[in-house]
Write a protein that binds this DNA or RNA. Structure first.
Lengths: 319, 319
DNA sequence: TTGTAGGCGTTATCAC
DNA sequence: GTGATAACGCCTACAA
C-alpha cells in the first residue's frame, strides 16, 4: 500500500501534481497526468480513506444498525437502500448488534467516523439516541421510532396498512378475519393491529387478534374465531401459519385464505405464491435520500398495494 | 465533536497528558488523570477513529462482503461471528453487494482502510481476489472458495455432510432418498450432492438428484423416484418442499420424511419442527479467530450433528 | 504548469 | 510527571 507521496517520488513530481492527476483537476499537462495515472495503476495505488476523511471531516459511508430479530426483511430493505445510495457514490455499512449497549456503541462509532447518516432499526421501542450523535449526523429511525430530539422517523402509515387488509379481504367476501401478529411490541405491530381492529368494527366485523403464534394458540384462535381469512403481520408469520395449517390438514385457500405483508424478495424465492401487501421499499429509499439532501423526507400517503397471488380466494357473501 | 488538543487546552495541560489519561498509561498523577477523564466525559469527547487508524495503520474492524443471494443463513453466521469478534474488541462491518464489481470494490475498500481481515461470501464460484488486497490483509472465503494466492478457505467437509444425511436416513429405514438442491453451482452444493450420491451407491441405493425445485419439477421427481425421504440442501429448500408437498396433500412425515441442513436460528423462529443437520457455526467462528491469530484455522473433522425433530420418521425396512 | 507548506486528530518519542 | 515535536496520508491554498 503505497502513499501518494511515495507515488510522487517514483514519478519524480510533487505530491500536489499527483493530486491534480488523480482528481482530474486542471493545471497539469496531459503528458504528466497520463504518466502519473499509469504509474498509479501499475503500483496499485489506492488513496487512504482514513486520511481523506480526517481532512475532509466526512466519510463516504452511511452506517446502519441491524438487530438480530426479524432481520430478513431488513436485509431486503437494506439491499434496496444500498443500491440507491451507490448511485450517489455512497456506501452502506451494516453493523450487526445484539444488545442495547452494542446498538448505542455502533451509533457512537458512526458519529465519530463522520458518516453521512445513521440508519437505525431499533431493537426495542423508544430507545433514546444520545444528543452528541444526533447533532453530528442525521439519524433516521426506520420502521419503529426512537426517542430524542432531531431524530427522523420513517415509516408508512401502518394503521392504514391494517385497514387496507381488512378492506381487501372484506371486498372478497370475507366476514370473519383473524389477525395474527407478534407478542413483541413495536410501532408497526401495534399500529397495524389498531388499524385492523378499527376498520373491522367500522365494517361491522368482530376483530380477533392472536399475538404470539404457535400450535396451541393458533388452534384455540381458530376454534374461537372460525375465520375464513388470516391477516398476518408479515410474510414470515404467514409462513408459520401456512405450515401449522397444513399440519392440521387445513387447505389454503380452499378452507382458509391467508394474506401477508411485505412482499419480501427473499421470501418470494422460498414461496412465490403468497398473496401479500407490498411494503413501499422504493419510497422508503427515496425518503432516505431526501433526508440526505436536507429535505424533510416522509412516507406520508404511501400505501401497500395488494399483490394478488394464490392464497386468498373469494367467499360467496353470507348474510 | 471536540478534539484531544481542544480537550487539553480546556484542562490546561498538553495533548500528551490527555493521551496518558485516556489510555490509562503510567506517568501521570492520579489527580490530573481524574480531572481530564471528568472533563472528557463532560464534553462528550470521542477519539476520532480515522486519525487513530491513520497513525497506527490498523483499524479495529473486520469487513465482510454479503451478497444478496441466500443471505439469511449468512446473516445468522455473521451474527455469531460478530459476537465472537466483539469479545476481542473487534467490530464486524457488513457490506451488502449485488454485482461482482461491487464485491471487488468492497474488498478494495477493506484493504485501503487497513481492516484486520476480510470475510467473503463469493456470489459465484472462483472469483479471483486481487493480489494487493490479499497482501494487505487476510482474506477468508467462507462456504465457497475464491481464487488467488494466500486466500484462506473455510468450509466444513461438505461431501461428508451429504454422506451423513444418507447414513442417517438409511439408519432410520429409508431406502429411496431424493436429494433436493439448487441449480446454482457452488462448492457446498456440488460437494453435498457428490457425497450424497457416493454414499447412496455404496449403500446400494439409487441416487436421485433434483437441482432447481418448483411445483412441476418436484412432481416429476416424486413420480420418478417415489422417495420416502427428501434430503434438502438447506433448511430454506426444505421449507419450499414442505409447502409444495402440503399443496399436494402429502403429509410430513407420515407420507414422506424431510431432512434439512443448517439449523439456522432465523429458520427455527418460523418453523421449529424441522429435522436438520446443524452447521458448525461455532467452529467456523473459532477458525476465523485462529486465522486472526496467524494460526492455520480449519474446519477439518467438523461434522454436522443431526438435530432430531419431527419431520423424519422411521420406516420398517423393506426388503 | 508545477512545487511548497500547513493542517486534520491521533500516537509515539523524545526532552525537561 | 509533564510538555514539545514529529509523523501518519491526504487535501487545499498559495507561491514560483
Amino acid at each position: 500500500m503505497i502513499s501518494s507521496l511515495e507515488l510522487a517520488r517514483r514519478c519524480g513530481v510533487s505530491q500536489g501534481t499527483v493530486d491534480r492527476a488523480l482528481h482530474g483537476r486542471p493545471g497539469i499537462s496531459p503528458r504528466t497526468r497520463d504518466r502519473i495515472l499509469a504509474a498509479a495503476e501499475q503500483c496499485g495505488y489506492r488513496p487512504n480513506p482514513a486520511a481523506r476523511e480526517l481532512i475532509t471531516g466526512q466519510s463516504g459511508l452511511v452506517g446502519a444498525v441491524l438487530p438480530s430479530v426479524n432481520n430478513v426483511f431488513f436485509m431486503d430493505l437494506f439491499h434496496e437502500l444500498a443500491k440507491r445510495l451507490r448511485e450517489r457514490g455512497l456506501r452502506l455499512q451494516l453493523a450487526p448488534v445484539e444488545t442495547r449497549a452494542e446498538f448505542l456503541a455502533a451509533l457512537d462509532d458512526f458519529a465519530a467516523r463522520r458518516h453521512r447518516m445513521a440508519l437505525v432499526i431499533p431493537p426495542e421501542d423508544g430507545i433514546p439516541i444520545p444528543r452528541p450523535v444526533a447533532r453530528q449526523l442525521p439519524v433516521v429511525s426506520l420502521v419503529s421510532p426512537c426517542k430524542g430530539a432531531g431524530i427522523h422517523f420513517l415509516a408508512p402509515d401502518e394503521e392504514e396498512t391494517g385497514r387496507t387488509a381488512v378492506r381487501y379481504l372484506h371486498g372478497r367476501g370475507h366476514r370473519r378475519i383473524l389477525h395474527l401478529t407478534y407478542a413483541r411490541q413495536s410501532y408497526a405491530i401495534k399500529a397495524r393491529a389498531r388499524g385492523y381492529a378499527g376498520q373491522a368494527r367500522e365494517t361491522g366485523l368482530q376483530p380477533h387478534i392472536l399475538a404470539g403464534v404457535d400450535r396451541e394458540s393458533l388452534a384455540r384462535a381458530l376454534r374461537a374465531a372460525r375465520p375464513t381469512a388470516l391477516f398476518c403481520h408479515n410474510d414470515w408469520l404467514a409462513l408459520t401459519a401456512l405450515l401449522l395449517l397444513s399440519e392440521r390438514g387445513i387447505r389454503v385457500p380452499e378452507d382458509v385464505s391467508i394474506l401477508g405483508v411485505d412482499n419480501s424478495p427473499t421470501f418470494a424465492a422460498i414461496n412465490p405464491h403468497l398473496t401479500t401487501l407490498a411494503y413501499p421499499m422504493e419510497a422508503m429509499a427515496r425518503a432516505v435520500l431526501d433526508i440526505l439532501d436536507g429535505k424533510p423526507g416522509s412516507l406520508a400517503g404511501e400505501r401497500f398495494p395488494v399483490i394478488e397471488r394464490e392464497t386468498v380466494r373469494d367467499i360467496e357473501s353470507a348474510v
